[in-house]
Design a protein around this nucleic acid. Sequence first.
DNA 1: GTCTATAGACGGATAGAC
DNA 2: GTCTATCCGTCTATAGAC
Lengths: 221, 221
Amino acid sequence: MPGFQKSDTLEILLYAAEELFAKQGFDGTTLRDITGLAGVNLAAAHYHLGNKEALYIKVFTRRLQPINESRLARLARAEQEANISLVGMEQLIEIMARPLFELAADTQHGGQYFARILGRCLVEPLPFMEAIITAELQPVMARFGQALRRHSPQLAPEEYLWRFSFVIGAMHHSLATLHGMKVRTHGICRDHDAAAALQRFIPFAVATFTAPVKPEPVNNR
Amino acid sequence: MPGFQKSDTLEILLYAAEELFAKQGFDGTTLRDITGLAGVNLAAAHYHLGNKEALYIKVFTRRLQPINESRLARLARAEQEANISLVGMEQLIEIMARPLFELAADTQHGGQYFARILGRCLVEPLPFMEAIITAELQPVMARFGQALRRHSPQLAPEEYLWRFSFVIGAMHHSLATLHGMKVRTHGICRDHDAAAALQRFIPFAVATFTAPVKPEPVNNR
DNA sequence: GTCTATAGACGGATAGAC
DNA sequence: GTCTATCCGTCTATAGAC
């Protein structure tokens, strides 16, 4: 966490909450855990945030909104520069994924914890987060989904959506587990290595969308 | 849930726990939720299972162990039949993935709920589950990882591990979200459609491992 | 804005009758 | 094996002094 000066109670709370929510989940984290780590009084947390759900939402949107704005801005700029031709697939995927992987690599300012929260959010459905995800996350994903779609007109809609789902799944899984890569790979991959992850993720995603169609259904067994 | 006859209290409890743990997570589910859904007395649950963590572990291993045994048996048989040549990539991935996707499609006997639990387990780390995952899940994953590795000797170890991680991530994400595909795709894909998922997942995984290596690091922006 | 103190509900777990 | 009743700790949230 960066250095705080005056009365940044709210900021300190958000950083502590981010870390614990990422590690333990929403239901596994108590306000006492958070205020304890933050060194803030329990009642003060309620004063600043109202309740636990509002705290979680604040942790979520505080990071996601600026990232989404910058991603959409970069996308719009790239499309403008490409004029009537298409923005390259590599570039589309890079614009979509880089800010997230870089966040996952940020071990100094808590970005890594937000990346883990984001990686979890599609898989552990918190009822009160449904509206937030629909409003903040889905439109941006859909925007990139549409842009990538133009590169894969040969794919049937269902085929394309499955592949897009695999790519998004791989990305969220990576965001949630970029810490811990070292242990899982017995030291071969490093933890929080955004550059390595991105360098592999971009061609991986391109290969997913450009792979030929398997016409006949699976016939094994 | 299937029809129970005599005093299948334990079984009823496991089905109810499976459903609620999948939907709400471990910390988000109370024993009272579970016994309420199961129609079983709270004290009876403790009598049969000891405590909440033991219940979760039981829910987890009860499904996973037989699946892993059958997957390893099929793999061993396929390797024997292939003699000194390699088992095909398609077949390897099919052996690894099919039982899980079929479970995710089982809306009659609760298999779908276990698939969601499995899909969550890599991304939401429960401290008491670490040992179980290391003992029950990792060895099987490693076994398939090794078998697939022989098809990709051209990939550097790090490169291979990243791709394997993407494939596993896509699979777990799919398992956790195979319900809800219809809403997310605006009706184009169906829910719990194991056949469709598998038909796309297998070539997707093959394409991931056979994609050419991008030599130079990403240079965009 | 920050604190102490506490309300009020709910959590997992158990004792002991049947 | 199953039940009622209950213990006891912890939770979120708030009231009210400073």
